[in-house]
C-alpha cells in the first residue's frame, strides 16, 4: 500500500475517533432526554435524529455543502471563531460525520436508558445520590454494554461513510481523503490491487466490529434484556 493509502487510513481513524467522542458528549444527554421526557413532541425529535438512517447520504451531503459554502452564515461564523475555512476542511468532515452517525449512537443509548427501572433511581436518590451521581453510579454501569455498542457502531459507521464525504470533502489527501474515497480513487484509476487491500481491509474490520457488537448484545441480556441495534443501516 502506498503512503497515500496509509494517510487515508490514519485520517479515517482520526475522523472516526473524534466523531465518536463528540457524539458521546452530544448523544448521551440527548438520549437521556429522549428516554425520559413526557413531552408530546418527542417523536418529531426522534424522527429528526433517525433521518440519516433512511436518507441517501447525498441528500445530507448536498445541504451540508451549501451550509459549508464560504458565503453561508455558518461558514462565516466558523471563520470568525477559528480563522479557518469550513469548506473542504477536516472540521467539516467531523461535523458531517457527527450528524450522519448520530442515530447509531443515540438509539442504543436511548433503548438502554429506557430499561433502567425508575425505582432504582428513586432508591439511589433516597440514598443521597443527586442527578449526576445517579447517572454515573447507576445508569452508566447498567447501560455499560449499550455504551460499548453505541461507541462501536458510531465509530464503524463513520469509517464506512462515503456519500456525505464525497459531496463535501473535496478529496484532499491528508486532509479530507478518507478510506472509502481513496478506494473509489483506486478503482477509478484501475489500481485494482491497491483497491483490494483497502476494500478487503474494510470488510475484515467491519466484520470483526459487528461480531463484537452482536456478542455484546447477546450477553447484555443478563443485565437489562432486549436487543437495541438500530433498525436500519443506511
Amino acid at each position: 500500500m502506498s503512503d497515500h493509502d496509509w494517510l487515508a487510513i490514519f485520517l479515517t481513524l482520526r475522523l472516526a475517533g473524534l466523531t465518536t467522542l463528540i457524539l458521546l458528549v452530544i448523544a448521551t444527554p440527548l438520549a437521556w432526554w429522549m428516554a425520559n421526557t413526557p413531552w408530546r413532541g418527542k417523536p418529531v425529535i426522534e424522527a429528526l435524529v433517525a433521518l440519516p438512517l433512511v436518507l441517501p447520504p447525498t441528500v445530507l451531503g448536498f445541504y451540508l455543502l451549501i451550509a459549508f459554502a464560504p458565503s453561508s452564515p455558518l461558514a462565516q461564523f466558523w471563520l470568525s471563531l477559528t480563522g479557518e475555512n469550513l469548506a473542504f476542511s477536516f472540521s467539516a468532515l467531523v461535523i458531517a460525520s457527527v450528524l450522519y452517525s448520530l442515530p447509531f449512537v443515540v438509539q442504543p443509548l436511548q433503548s438502554g436508558f429506557q430499561q433502567v427501572p425508575k425505582a432504582l433511581l428513586e432508591t439511589a436518590a433516597s440514598l443521597g445520590a443527586g442527578r449526576l451521581d445517579r447517572f454515573i453510579s447507576i445508569v452508566v454501569p447498567l447501560c455499560r454494554s449499550n455504551f460499548l455498542v453505541a461507541i462501536t457502531l458510531g465509530f464503524a459507521h463513520t469509517v464506512g461513510e462515503f456519500g456525505v464525504v464525497l459531496m463535501i470533502g473535496g478529496n484532499i489527501p491528508g486532509r479530507t481523503q478518507v478510506l472509502s474515497i481513496a478506494l473509489y480513487d483506486r478503482v477509478e484509476s484501475l489500481q485494482y490491487s491497491a483497491a483490494h487491500w483497502l476494500a478487503g481491509g474494510l470488510i475484515a474490520f467491519s466484520f470483526i466490529v459487528l461480531c463484537w457488537v452482536y456478542r455484546l448484545n447477546r450477553y447484555r441480556g443478563l443485565e437489562l434484556g432486549n436487543s437495541h441495534l438500530p433498525k436500519a443501516q443506511a
Binding site: A119, T123, L127, I138, E223
Partner: peptide, 19 residues
C-alpha cells in the same frame, strides 16, 4: 429533592442495585 431530605426508603421490592 428526595436526596436532600435524609429519608431512608424501603420499597416493596427491595430495589437492590443489580450491578
Amino acid at each position: 429533592q428526595c436526596e436532600k431530605r435524609g429519608v431512608g426508603l424501603v420499597f416493596q421490592d427491595a430495589q437492590l442495585f443489580p450491578h
